[in-house]
Design a protein around this nucleic acid. Structure first.
Lengths: 183, 183
DNA sequence: AGAATCATGTAAGGGGTTACATGATTCG
DNA sequence: CGAATCATGTAACCCCTTACATGATTCT
């Protein structure tokens, strides 16, 4: 079974660079993603439990003196596969950009994975299609308010497109240039 | 007690133009707000119950033959007051624009209420402050990824500002011109 | 001495979606 | 004759947030 919520993929992503226990995952996400993805400790442990049940993770306990034993998690093949598939899939909705798309950019960058340019390009195509749909809508007898709404949506999409072209694309071009492992 | 979720205010707003029963509220929101605010029938009845308990609504039943009796809801003074206060308050987060801010615009327009220009102007000030905070952030030793994130945020806010100035402001200028009750 | 760090969890509650339950009338 | 409209709700489930529970160690 594959995870459905983006949050679970972020947790999987945190384990792509090696096995970690819960507390380490919190630290990693807190320092690397900062405000891009916030996750409470309690929710993390819930997700880890779920991901293990889904077969995406395996865990083993390292006992320590005078502290609760560490449960160290690592990805299974299924988990790694699910993560990589999620990673290379464009987001569907405009609202998913601020967190989900940016997280994908983060993982491509920090893990030096190939395919970032492809994602940016397919994501651009997804938005171009959406913009086209917004602009070609039947707008006879549309209220002033609905004009305002579609104006809002169109500007939003245009803004994302220009960010993708002018900032995200150059960011992932480094992939080509071999300037890897900066994080 | 005042509602906390925007959805509840939208329901209150649907009753500002007169008493309605649940099914009518659904129709009203469905036709007027379309995709701007979608609400399931089941959730609507939950909200109506909660709003009545909070003292924002009153209801009375109109019995009908061969159909379940209509429960007709109307705003209390507390409900009307809560709605108007919500309406004139700017949204705090960028993510609240696509639904919450647009809904406020809708109600100002369809109810021909005064204060829309003030809201747009204070909302512009809120965003200007936010943009300033983004641009003045300490960005020494910031990772390439975080630069990308802040570039994203800044563009987003700039896009909203230009929409507010170029589209939302003209939209509410009609308030002045006396071109009312178009809906 | 008190705060922060290390380390893991459970429980309650909030707000939302989808599915389910009922049942007459009217339109195509 | 089946689909849409009219009309109201309950129940289960999902994801997330906040609060609670525990307890040693290390830093200030």
């Amino acid at each position: 079974m594959t995870p459905k919520s983006p949050t679970e993929y972020v947790v999987l992503g945190a384990l792509m660079s090696g096995a970690r226990h819960g507390y380490e995952i919190m630290q990693f996400l807190g320092s690397a993603l900062e405000s891009t993805w916030q996750l409470s400790t309690s929710q993390l442990y819930v997700l880890l439990k779920r991901l293990e049940q889904e077969g995406c993770l395996e865990s083993c306990s390292e006992s320590q003196e005078s502290r609760p034993p560490k449960r160290v998690f690592k990805l299974t093949n299924a988990g790694r596969k699910a993560f990589l598939e999620w990673l290379s899939t464009p987001v569907e909705h405009v609202r998913d950009f601020r967190m989900e798309f940016l997280c994908k950019m983060f993982f491509f960058d920090s893990l030096s994975l190939p395919g970032a340019k492809d994602l940016v390009n397919t994501q651009i195509r997804v938005l171009e299609k959406l913009l086209d749909k917004i602009q070609r809508r039947p707008n006879k007898d549309e209220s002033g308010f609905m004009k305002l709404v579609y104006g809002f949506k169109a500007r939003n999409v245009e803004s994302l497109l220009s960010w993708l072209r002018q900032e995200a694309r150059p960011f992932v071009e480094q992939e080509k240039a071999g300037k890897r492992r900066r994080l």
